[in-house]
Design a protein around this nucleic acid. Structure first.
Length: 649
DNA sequence: ATATGAATTGTTTTT
DNA sequence: CAATTCATAT
């Protein structure tokens, strides 16, 4: 291949399979990329290659499923060639959909813009509807709001009729079918009235836009000549449709994924999408990347065997040239605390041997699994950062402040008004409703709160609230910066915060942090959208610490948040049958398969050393069972591929 | 609007 | 068994 005309010597940087994918010219391409096989590398080199061939970077659309994956991809593409690659289009499906809807939403009737609501907002709305419906209902109490929302979301994401979801997945709720259906209708209607988009809506509306407006679809197909999708195994049917619609004209669609790493089916992801790609795009070239550059052979031997237990997959077998190295270890401990202390001690040892903390990760199935470990790490003074789990944005005080800002943009936002008003003393749902109605009746936007007339006794806090908005609106006449608005809201809110929370000093720091973020924004709309779509990733406690110190830190992460990353040493704690796989997945075949893939993802993060640990004999009070076996996914290989130890203190 | 009591329920992962 | 969450009474 005459690589003369290229700045980058692709043949030298890539193995034959990667090279083939990178040089693949036009038409549909499916790359099955095993763990650690250079998936992101292949994608980014292909971007560079296209740009070198004269394709305008903005004409390349890179889509991914999670923020982390898309950021990493765009960053590496930009670093590879030169400044040009920074202009590559892309992001998560949701952020791309958001961009398109801001630009073309008027075609769907979003004349005045829209508000993105997160899961908690959506639940509150469903909770309100649930209450409306349940008064005077005889079929007993309805399921909780979270459950109802799950049903609604599942129906949307899997493109299955609502009734069918109830019949298939919630047969015990069939006697509520009428009420549930009614709530679903009302939910859709209310969202429409208040111009709310939940996460699912973003995708649904984008698909609708592409389906119904052929001219727009053509324009977008012309603008995005090359579409590339990372983590394709995690797309749901709606996302697959979006890709198909964007690519149907030019068919320059490259999707990359690994069916063995599909771990988002709870969100409607269907790894069958990747199996079906060659049918959607007939004549698609399929390339497999099977050489692993990450892990030593003993780890690969184990993970290959683990994933062999999966029923359905593209067969591929990873190999490496990294021979030798330590056998992965399986460590049982007396109880949870011994597990924590074992891990901490081992980490300190490794660190003393020269492995930096940032090259070590502790992974777990569920966020709360690390609580005990976090205490032990704190005790020994090991710095760490925790990814996943309780988010900054989910904290009540953060949501309170955002609500005050949201109504400036969208005065019809009932959820935010209620949130604001219920903070006031002597205001409950009834009063909140009355005030909200009055604001609406005034038809004056946020001004409605200032000109408010209220019969009877006025709640004491109302005056302060009116003052706040009077100032905010006055500031709004000359375009106030986001941070200035934020500061005023925080000033107003701080007394309320101190009243309501005993731990207010910590929370005030969070608000400072939020103000810091606000300074990066010049308009309120994009700030609010980002807070819903791309919120700061870390946990509340670490969000500040992490920015202050760039020091060497251990990573604690859920397996889901660890996808795509790698470390020198990985500990997988709670590798206990009943915890991982979770006890709730044991009955359903498909869920058990997903747990297996999850364990596979966890184990393939390790380059040199891999530890599975589990506390011996844990009583599960949910089921009344005594959990004492190692995870069924690794137990078959105890004798052959694992070094076993038991620790008691 | 708040307090008290009853009942249910228990997973988790992210946009 | 605990904790949350909902319903009812005051």
């Amino acid at each position: 291949m005459p690589s003369k005309k290229y700045q980058i010597d692709y043949a030298k940087c890539l193995n034959p399979a990667q090279y083939e994918a990178v040089m693949f010219s036009e038409g549909p391409l499916l790359v099955i990329a095993g763990a650690g096989s250079g998936k992101t590398r292949t994608l980014t080199y292909r971007v560079a290659r296209l740009v070198e061939d004269g394709i305008h970077p903005a004409a390349i659309l890179l889509l991914s499923f999670t923020r982390k994956a898309s950021q990493e991809m765009l960053r590496r593409a930009a670093a590879l060639l030169d400044k040009r690659c920074e202009q590559v289009s892309g992001g998560t499906f949701h952020s791309f959909a958001h961009l398109m809807l801001r630009r073309y939403g008027h075609l769907l009737g979003f004349e005045q813009g829209f508000t993105i609501i997160d899961r908690a907002d959506a639940e509150t709305l469903v909770g309100m509807l649930r209450k409306e419906i349940s008064t005077g209902l005889k079929s007993g109490t309805l399921p909780r709001k979270g459950t109802i929302l799950n049903i609604i979301s599942r129906s949307v994401n899997k493109a299955v009729a609502f009734d069918e979801v109830v019949y298939e997945d919630y047969p015990h709720l069939i006697h509520h079918l009428d009420a549930l259906r009614r709530i679903q209708e009302l939910y859709t209607q209310r969202k429409r009235e208040m111009a709310f988009c939940d996460y699912d809506d973003l995708l649904v509306y984008l698909r609708q836009l592409l389906l119904m407006h052929e001219d727009l679809r053509r324009r977008l197909a012309a603008r995005y000549e090359f579409v590339m999708v990372d983590e394709y195994q995690d797309t749901n049917p709606i996302q697959a449709d979006i890709v198909a619609l964007l690519g149907e004209e030019h068919r320059n669609v490259m999707v990359v994924g690994d069916d063995s790493q599909s771990i988002y089916s709870f969100r409607g992801a269907d790894f069958q999408n990747i199996m079906r790609f060659p049918e959607t795009f007939t004549g698609a070239r399929v390339i497999k990347l099977e050489e692993n550059y990450r892990s030593i052979q003993p780890i690969l031997d184990l993970t290959n065997r683990m994933i062999d237990q999966a029923a359905e997959k593209y067969t591929k077998r990873l190999f490496t040239q990294k021979e030798g190295g330590a056998t992965p270890a399986l460590v049982s401990t007396e109880d949870e605390n011994v597990q924590s202390r074992f891990v901490v001690e081992k980490i300190i040892d490794l660190n003393a041997e020269g492995v930096p903390l940032k090259e070590i990760a502790v992974l777990f199935r569920a966020s709360f699994h690390s609580f005990d470990l976090e205490i032990e790490l704190g005790r020994e003074g090991v710095p760490f950062i925790k990814v996943g789990g309780f988010k900054f944005m989910e904290a009540a005080h953060i949501k309170d402040v955002l609500a005050h800002l949201r109504v400036i943009e969208a005065p019809h936002d009932r959820l935010s008004w209620y949130r604001i008003l219920l903070l006031l003393e002597r205001v409950g749902p009834k009063t909140a409703q009355r005030i909200f109605d009055a604001i609406m009746a005034a038809r004056a936007g946020v001004n409605g709160i200032c000109s408010l007339q209220l019969k009877g006794k006025r709640p004491a806090g109302l005056d302060r609230l009116q003052d706040l908005y009077a100032t905010l609106i006055a500031a709004g006449e000359s375009p106030a910066s986001v941070a200035v608005l934020g500061q005023q809201v925080v000033d107003y809110y701080t007394p309320i915060l101190r009243e309501r929370f005993d731990d207010y000093p910590k929370r005030e720091k969070d608000l400072d942090h939020l103000l810091g973020i606000m300074e990066r924004y010049s308009d309120l709309t994009s700030f609010l959208a980002d807070m819903a779509l791309e919120p700061p990733n870390a946990t509340v406690d670490e969000s500040m610490a992490a920015e202050e110190s760039t020091g060497d830190r251990l990573t604690l992460s859920t397996v889901h948040s660890a996808k795509g990353l790698e470390w020198h040493t990985v500990f997988i704690i709670w590798s206990l049958d009943g915890r991982f796989p979770s006890i709730h997945a044991l009955n359903k075949e498909s869920e058990l398969e997903e747990e297996l893939r999850l364990m596979y993802v966890a184990a393939t993060r390790a380059r040199e050393r891999l530890y599975f640990t589990y506390p011996h004999q844990i009583f599960d009070r949910g089921s009344g069972m005594l959990l004492s076996r190692p995870s069924r996914f690794i137990e078959p290989f105890c004798a052959s591929h694992l070094a076993q130890r038991h620790i008691s203190w």
